[in-house]
Amino acid sequence: MEWNMSEQVKGSVLIAGGGIAGMQAALDAANSGFYVYLVERRAAIGGKMAQLDKTFPTNDCAM
């Protein structure tokens, strides 16, 4: 019965967009026991945040 259930439901998540939102969602889903496909259009993840110099209000480095 339990086996049938997991046959029906896929234990995987597709995340479209590898910026800070997609990366966090991917980490949380994976750490909770699910296989994650993280899909990014560009050649690297990081999104817009990777282009930022510092972040407010602590002026911490965005990297």
């Binding site: 439901v9 896929k10 234990g11 995987s12 998540v13 597709l14 995340i15 479209a16 967009g17 590898g18 910026g19 939102a21 997609g22 969602a25 889903a29 699910f34 496909y37």
Partner: peptide, 8 residues
Amino acid sequence: DVGAIVLS
């Protein structure tokens, strides 16, 4: 074939 989708 995935169980759910997150758009970001």
